[in-house]
Design a protein around this nucleic acid. Sequence first.
DNA 1: TATCCCCGAGAAATCGATTACACGTCGATC
DNA 2: GATCGACGTGTAATCGATTTCTCGGGGATA
Lengths: 344, 344
Amino acid sequence: MANIKDVAERAGVSVATVSRVLNGHSPVAETRERVLAAVRELGYRPNNVARALRTARTGTLGLIIGDLTNPFFTELADAVEDEARSLGYSLVIGNAGERPDQQDDYIRTLLDRQIDGLLVSSAGTGSTMLGEVVASGTPLVLLDRIVPGVDAPCVRADGREALTDLAAHLAALGRRRPAIIVAPAGTPTGDERLRLFRTALAAHGIALPDTCVGATPDLQHTGGRAVMRAFLDLPEPPDAVLATDNLMALGAMDELRARGLRIPEDMALVVYDDVPWFRHADPPLTVIAQPTRELGRAAVHTLLARIEGRDAASVLLPARLVARNSCGEPTGRRVPAPSRAEPV
Amino acid sequence: MANIKDVAERAGVSVATVSRVLNGHSPVAETRERVLAAVRELGYRPNNVARALRTARTGTLGLIIGDLTNPFFTELADAVEDEARSLGYSLVIGNAGERPDQQDDYIRTLLDRQIDGLLVSSAGTGSTMLGEVVASGTPLVLLDRIVPGVDAPCVRADGREALTDLAAHLAALGRRRPAIIVAPAGTPTGDERLRLFRTALAAHGIALPDTCVGATPDLQHTGGRAVMRAFLDLPEPPDAVLATDNLMALGAMDELRARGLRIPEDMALVVYDDVPWFRHADPPLTVIAQPTRELGRAAVHTLLARIEGRDAASVLLPARLVARNSCGEPTGRRVPAPSRAEPV
DNA sequence: TATCCCCGAGAAATCGATTACACGTCGATC
DNA sequence: GATCGACGTGTAATCGATTTCTCGGGGATA
């Protein structure tokens, strides 16, 4: 592979001139043409490793996501990638697999590769490396998940409005015994969703007793299924369930089907996160949709602000209720906002 | 951030010694301990950019996938990532978004970053950069998709056996008018699946007329829906459809539902690629499952072989039919092989 | 006791770019 | 016509590691 020296020789100039031409620093017509011709003829492409060493900028952002096989994170990663790319950065995606140790491992790797900034959807709250990232001065932005004690802006969705709408929706449909499937207590995201849901229900005089709060240690579908099983075995089972993650919802649906129970007749189901196939499910699922792509975009901008030394605050974007048919509602309407047709 | 010079000073040795200790080249007890202590105290971590410049090895592999939001590719990427990671490499994932120009862009970026090797699930066959990769000497392995004219080993699944089983399965269930939804003619993967399916059906005396071959220009669910619509408008609609991609299957299912048609009573449906939620669909879908994780693993090994200068041949792993209920089959059996319980 | 070898460790070259500094040339100004 | 500035370009330092070459000292052998 040709290097800058080869180009310089071929063009009959010094390496400094080549560098200046290529970076648009000061050169003029004649020399410029000779250099560009040499570049073309040799198929020269600058070595980014060398450039990064000298400039201390790699043009690479890191993204750690909770789980590569979770469609919510995938869409998020896709959005981040798009935005980073359009701004001239490339992206290294690290998959934490929902394991804090693997996450720390990955953060270490990315730090060693001298990325310019890091986005993290943290798996759990026990990451020791996050503190080190902040200490090392590498710009850091949290995405989707807060981590207590880590001093970095966080870009995420606010479920208050959507959960308020959901409570109204359920109340209007006569559901009086709601339940929720969440991450274990102590998980900030789970705790918050539980709290907001409970508050929103209270406004309609509906209680959310502790027996109707099911925590899953894993955030997987097996956990969701186990919780649904426990709900159904209750003396007075709930008549509506909010699954706070798409995988847990899958498990819950399996348990319902296994017992021959139908959605929404026997049980209303609402899912957090709008995974593409939910709208094609039978019945189409009522969901709380996070503004995934906007989150990704905002996260990149926030991170770039930090990288460029501007300060950047946390961002909170509203999630919204998308009412389909899994609570008994006629199709294609948003509640309680004015109806809005949804293309299928 | 501390550098090797700081460590050397603190330990009272030269930078060369530090490097040797850290790379295990020739160290001895006493000096070694001093160096390690200094490393610990300063929190030193080697700068990989500098190391890469000197050694011409970045310890990074590139992976270009067709579409980040397609669960098949996600699972593949996850598998590749796992394997690469366990072998001490990190992975940069590039998302081609099924667009050859974006793919070329990405390949360029990765090449500039001096990755040690590249895995590509090519979007289309029109990539001009793939030739350049080969020419540049960067080790290249194709994954899942062949690209004619590119001289590199390819790791992918072989559908012959599965499609043979599928033909037998459909014949046994009395389906006589099968159809297929494929990528447009000229797409190697699509052409091959069509050819193999047709041959397999012929062995049972079943024809696959051209009217029952529907090509979708996009590989998305809208295309799948359009093709299914055309099939259903035929004077004699098919009684079984093979969708050769999970997204196209989604669209096909939408069209069936919109017409009030049921699976499998009114139409048998089989899908290429076993996306996790297919087994939770209603009815659970009969699929042709590719050995995704094995493909990812094999691809990494093949690429490493190339990187280390050993030669490496193409790899072909068998896909298999997983019969669930979408053709009318009782649940949980593989056909025609002996039945095998499948955990749900 | 003298010679040779081996081994550990330092000095310096190196990877390929960017960039501070210095220098020469040219036109403009007084 | 001499001086100054601006401008274009070359020389060389630099980024942080690895690695070659070299040297000094200690142990073994004759």
